[in-house]
Simulated assay, not measured.
Amino acid sequence: MRPQSVLLPVSLVILAMVFTQTGASFAKMLFPAVGAAGATTLRLTLAALVLLALFRPWRYRLDAAQWRAVLLYGLVMGAMNLFFYAALVTIPLGVAVALEFTGPLAVALAGSRRPLDFIWIVLAVLGLGLLLPLGHFSGPLDPVGVALALCAGACWAGYIVFGQKAGTGGGPHITALGVSIAALLTLPFGIATAGPALLDPAIWPIGLAVALLSSAIPYALDMRALPHIPARLFSILMSAQPALAALSGLLILGETLGPLQSGGIFAIILASLGSTITAMRSKRDDR
């Protein structure tokens, strides 16, 4: 792969993150109607239907090894969404995203080899620390919400690893299969908590928008990018998620940030840009 070729997958990952955090802001509108599990089920089910119609995965044949990779990819995707939305019930979006980032950060640490890589990781961690709005609360964070967000982070790490394996030599039909498996995993939880409310046509427009922004589009972009980008670089790029969540909250929900949080956004963006430049130079040196 030419050094310049890393720009395309990096651009796809960044675009996917923008869609994800925009959709997450809109997803809160579904909570009063169907709850966290219901919103997760609605989001993934509608996304799966859209992807199945577009990419028709039944036209492709997968061997046993590919099916195992796709199954694991879909299961961790579904669990990641269930844990994350459940965490949002008791802790703020910015905190949940920051805690969830421990998964990609673990992947980044495991794959790091050069001293400069650790500088970008430390900078990303510093930015996350500045972004945590702990001073805005009168009491401690809900431990259940924190635990759920950390579980979502563990699933996010699996999403990166299994997504790479499932996407190698595949295409958009892999995303359609993965999201469908994730939707099937979440379906019993959504039915148990929301029941007939999931069939209310009044919430479908918001549900479809969330499905497209938070699932269908970003997962398709991720699947296109993951086979062509190192897992470590993908994980560090994910550090921009809290910054994008904060920006989305400001533009869509009217949430404001203090100087420390603004500094955290700058540190995280710098870490993401630095990791991208380092990866490009590394590929050029190897060549």
Rank of each mutant, 00 (worst) to 15 (best):
L8W: 11
T22D: 00
A24R: 10
A24K: 09
S25A: 15
S25W: 05
F26A: 03
K28M: 09
P32F: 05
P32R: 10
G38R: 00
R43H: 03
L54I: 15
D63G: 15
A69Y: 15
A69T: 08
P92R: 04
V95P: 00
E100S: 05
T102I: 08
L105W: 04
V107A: 04
A110S: 12
R113Q: 11
R114L: 09
L116Q: 14
W120E: 00
I121H: 06
L131Q: 05
P140T: 13
P143A: 08
G145K: 02
A147G: 06
L150N: 04
C155P: 14
W156R: 07
Y159E: 02
G163Y: 01
G167N: 07
G167R: 00
A176I: 10
S180P: 08
A182C: 11
L185K: 02
P188S: 10
A192V: 05
T193L: 00
D200Y: 12
A209Y: 07
L212F: 06
S214D: 07
S214Y: 15
Y219I: 12
D222R: 01
H228P: 04
A231D: 01
L233R: 12
F234R: 11
P242N: 05
L257I: 11
L257V: 11
I265A: 08
T276H: 05
T276G: 07
M280E: 13
S282L: 15
K283F: 12
K283M: 13
